[in-house]
Design a protein around this nucleic acid. Structure first.
Length: 220
DNA sequence: GCCAACGTTGGC
DNA sequence: GCCAACGTTGGC
């Protein structure tokens, strides 16, 4: 996953988005089937999430000669501390992004680094629209199978809010998760552990608030 | 529509 | 660098 600065300008052009297209969604994870369904994201009674966790890599890593590094400091450094979350190429992650509403909060999670964990908080400032990198042959996340008249991939814009008072390592969150999986507690079903490889995940408000409360506690 | 092979993610 | 977990692909 990566965000990038160059993308911001083109955002303005894409205001006449594809609200219609964003309404259709391929089925989440059903093994390659690409069914196109008329939307209501999932099942009509699927829980509505309002908090999120989004993963990105803070360290340099080269994919096809391109550095995919994008940590919270990189987001903070962008104009208006705002960037687009492009490059998501997983249907479940994409569908969660399509459920995001302006103003909602998301944790910025640092993955694939020395100490993975939650670094800070950001806010959704623009709801899902076409991820233009899917059409860019030069881009790491170019998708030859996606056509401009029926784009497959979406992204949202996010704005930096703040760092957590202290970095919350995955290892610590995991201790709480294991503890609470046994005895009960807000993190017992946290997607970070039950859906380990998903790069955009929903959190219940209970999960979100509990994680947030940890920044005022001593490391476990 | 099943499922084995394959590829990727990402913690360790 | 290894490899487990798991999503995706494609043959049947």
């Amino acid at each position: 996953m990566k965000l990038s600065k160059e993308k911001l300008q083109s955002d303005k052009l894409s205001c006449l988005d594809n609200t219609e297209k964003a309404e259709e969604s391929e089925t989440a994870s059903s093994g390659g089937k690409r069914k196109v369904v008329k939307e209501s994201s999932e099942s009509p009674d699927s829980p509505e999430f309002s908090r999120w966790l989004m993963k990105s890599e803070p360290d340099s890593r080269f994919e096809n000669g391109i550095d995919v590094k994008f940590g919270i400091e990189d987001l903070k450094a962008l104009p208006d501390q705002t960037g687009c979350w492009d490059g998501v190429r997983n249907y479940q992650a994409r569908n969660f992004m399509r459920q995001m509403k302006e103003g909602q909060s998301a944790f910025f999670y640092h993955s694939n680094c020395k100490e993975p964990g939650i670094a800070g908080i950001m806010k959704i400032v623009k709801e899902a629209y076409v991820d233009h990198t899917q059409f860019d042959r030069k881009d790491v996340h170019y998708d030859a199978g996606s056509k401009p008249d029926n784009p497959k991939w979406s992204m949202v814009d996010v704005q930096y809010q703040r760092m957590l008072k202290r970095y919350l390592p995955l290892s610590e969150l995991k201790k709480y998760h294991l503890q609470q999986r046994a005895k009960g507690g807000p993190l017992k079903d946290m997607a970070l552990f039950t859906r380990a490889r998903l790069s955009v995940q929903p959190l219940t408000t209970e999960e979100f608030d509990f994680v947030l409360s940890l920044e005022d506690k001593e490391p476990l």
